[in-house]
Nucleic acid binder design. Structure first.
Lengths: 217, 217
DNA sequence: TCAAAAGTGTTAAGTTTACACCCATGA
DNA sequence: TCATGGGTGTAAACTTAACACTTTTGA
């Protein structure tokens, strides 16, 4: 096939994923030790390069599966980081995603093998390049979407208590919400439904377990 | 400088701009005749390729200035279109922006020279590649932001009447809004202020001219 | 004098917020 | 029996939505 654009430059294109999890009442982030120079060994988002025969979105999915073993994960594009000098090694244009995963389902063994680990979002270390900026942007995106998208359905196990869901919302929003108002609001949305099951782990009395309804519009 | 990423592929990266204007009570889009194969002469968004020594955002600004003569235009990244086969000529990864410009200020002579023209958003022709999809995404973004961002300040002339502002909102939203409620709402936001001037062109009685307040938070 | 756009308030409905006590259970 | 987290209702404040007539003026 002839090349029509040959006068133009070509660039490395990477994908970087801000991977959120929720565990122990706290929002977590999956990070790795950067596997190449420059910045070898520094803390880094999970990322990789776009390949010849895959779309940019597919590259992000591939990277995510490579690190977690999970497929069909909830992911959203956040934007492009395209400053000339953002990577001191080579010019790389990065497409950033955020992903939400259920930390109870992912392949822990695999991510350890990949040198990845979960950190609490509030103990975020300094990350390489412009990765802290990417995390900041992802947190803002989560905050603004938590009340309109069923974000919890990706971060929580299939069955969960309303207290867990509330605690997730509070972690994302960064402030406490009123228990009664919260329950009324999420129940009225009709996105979750009560099951017959009861969770006895977190309290003496036991808490009703809910699940996200299957129906999507 | 050594190349650390040499095993990876490099890609053409383009920027495509969904450029909105507002004139005669209608939302407009600036399009061009595609200047290269494949699809030479087809209707196309305003676009170009990212160069070696410019950031992706700068490339978008450069393209916009090239076509309109305007600088410091309001632009926002919309996302990346990165399917493998989206351009049948070559693999090109496109970063999409939307921009809002005041059609009374831009350089009409220049855009004509560039073979660009304004079309009414409701008479949108079939555009090349995946450009219609980009426009659709941009319209949704506008809709969801019209009530939180001072979008009008970029699309309207410096002085405008409330009827013009309302008509702009209606064009973006796609439905009529109540005049009294609209006026109360925009005035209470405090983003616009009344001037002493009066517009006599659009009515016998004359309408007060407003401007967007300088103050930004 | 009339056509055409500008301008102006009030009420009802709905939504959001604030707030405190009893319940069930296992240790 | 008591400590712990689970579960529940109501009233006030605020926001949104619906609705129609008068004003000004150039032709």
């Amino acid at each position: 096939m002839p090349n029509f654009y040959n006068e133009y430059e070509r660039f490395f294109v990477s994908v970087d994923c801000v991977i959120f999890g929720f565990s122990g009442g706290n929002l977590k982030l999956l990070i790795q030790k950067r596997p190449y120079e420059p910045g070898l060994g520094e803390d880094s988002l999970i990322g990789g390069f776009v390949g010849k025969d895959e779309s940019v979105n597919s590259a992000a999915s591939r990277v995510l599966t490579y690190f977690t073993g999970l497929e069909n994960v909830y992911m959203q594009q956040l934007g492009v980081f395209g400053e000339v000098e953002r990577d001191p090694g080579e010019r790389v244009i990065s497409v950033v995603y955020y992903a939400l995963i259920d930390v109870h389902e992912y392949n822990e063994h695999l991510s350890e093998k990949r040198n990845a680990r979960w950190i609490d979002i509030n103990d975020l270390p300094r990350l390489c390049l412009d990765h802290n900026e990417m995390v900041e942007k992802a947190r803002k995106a989560l905050k603004s979407r938590i009340n309109t998208e069923p974000i919890g359905s990706n971060l929580l196990p299939e069955l969960f208590t309303l207290s867990q869901l509330q605690s997730l919302h509070e972690s994302i929003l960064g402030y406490a919400v009123d228990k009664r108002n919260f329950r009324r609001a999420v129940l009225s949305h009709g996105l979750i439904e009560r099951t017959e099951k009861v969770d006895k782990k977190s309290s003496r009395r036991g808490a009703a377990l809910f699940r996200f309804s299957e129906l999507r519009n």
